[in-house]
């Protein structure tokens, strides 16, 4: 027993370093969701060690405030959140115990992606009989590359403040990212151009920014109102809307109720399309560009078949 305790302690000490330490000198950047993490990786490159709090497959509105996340945030040099109440059900509970002034609101180490984006779906009145509306608007803005361009600049700006020695590197990474994004956006727009005005159906209102950017139209959502599960009457309404408007594609995220989508699809001769918004869910979609390539390609393919 006497020998065991020091052994255990030294093991614990080793483990704490093995798990916690990023490559020497790297900034510990914590993103609430993996898509923000992937974007930060584009700008931070090898200067940053990225951790995402939400798992790529889970509903980002309902992440458990697990104590391990408090530890992650306690050591962070930077926190990138979506904002606009995306994480309101869990991030404030974590931050209460974090005791890290580097990521306090207003600090250079705190980035709220939503604060510079032109928000859609901003409610005219705050009324929960319309569902779980977010006061600042729809927080699913990462699927619009133009928003991503703005957010990337903001991340670069904050990284340069937190780690001034590498500011030049962040600036050049941002420039390279922007050039690639501009080229890619042209390519993605070309891929989706033939489907201008095409109707899509989604579960939650999480593809409105993608639709707006690429001139598609969200005909209806399976959810009756944000956060409110579909009633049978609403499902019937969705089916009739889809038939009327000839909407043949239903987009779902991995955590959403695929069964409801399939039921509706069977009755409308539509296809259910897996469109994971987070990197790493579909194969070879770990980076921002591979993910967007995948989503645009998948969507264009499905819309092409429906014609």
């Amino acid at each position: 027993m006497k020998k065991l305790i020091p052994k255990l302690l030294s093991l614990a000490w080793l483990a704490s370093w093995a798990i916690a330490a990023p490559v020497a000198g790297q900034l510990r950047v914590v993103a609430t969701t993996p898509d923000l993490g992937a974007l930060a990786k584009e700008i931070g490159g090898d200067r940053v060690d990225i951790t995402a709090l939400a798992k790529p497959t889970e509903d980002p509105h309902f992440v458990d405030a697990r104590p391990s996340l408090i530890v992650t945030l306690n050591r962070a040099d930077m926190l990138i959140e979506g904002g606009a109440e995306l994480e309101i059900g869990w991030l404030p509970a974590l931050l209460q115990g974090v005791r890290n002034t580097k990521i306090a609101a207003g600090a250079p180490g705190r980035v709220s992606a939503a604060s510079g984006v032109a928000m859609l779906d901003v409610p005219a009145s705050l009324d929960r009989s319309r569902g779980d509306v977010h006061a600042l608007g729809n927080p699913h803005f990462m699927l619009d590359p133009v928003n991503v361009r703005l957010i990337a600049a903001e991340i670069a700006n904050h990284l340069a403040q937190v780690d001034a020695a590498s500011a030049e590197q962040y600036r050049s990474n941002l420039q390279r990212f922007n050039e690639r994004l501009d080229a890619k956006l042209t390519e993605w727009q070309a891929q989706l151009a033939p489907f201008r005005g095409a109707k899509i159906v989604t579960y939650h209102r999480d593809f409105v920014y993608l639709a707006a950017r690429f001139n598609l139209e969200v005909a209806t959502t399976l959810e009756e109102r944000p956060g409110i599960a579909p009633s049978p009457a609403h499902v019937a309404q969705v089916i009739s809307t889809m038939r009327e408007q000839n909407a043949r594609v239903i987009l779902v995220q991995p955590y959403q109720n695929r069964r409801t989508a399939e039921t509706v699809a069977r009755q409308t001769d539509a296809v259910v399309l897996d469109m994971p918004q987070q990197p790493g869910v579909a194969q070879n979609t770990d980076s921002y560009f591979t993910l967007m390539d995948y989503l645009v390609h998948t969507l264009a393919g499905a819309l092409g078949q429906g014609r």
């Binding site: 904002g83 606009a84 109440e85 207003g106 250079p108 709220s112 939503a114 604060s115 510079g116 928000m119 901003v122 006061a135 600042l136 703005l150 600049a153 903001e154 670069a156 700006n157 904050h158 340069a160 403040q161 001034a164 500011a167 962040y170 600036r171 941002l174």
Partner: peptide, 18 residues
């Protein structure tokens, strides 16, 4: 504190919460 090496937006959007 905010010697901005890269121009970014000011945090002036709609305030989050009260």
């Amino acid at each position: 504190m905010f010697g901005l090496p890269i121009a970014g937006w000011a945090q002036v959007g709609s305030p989050s919460g009260a």
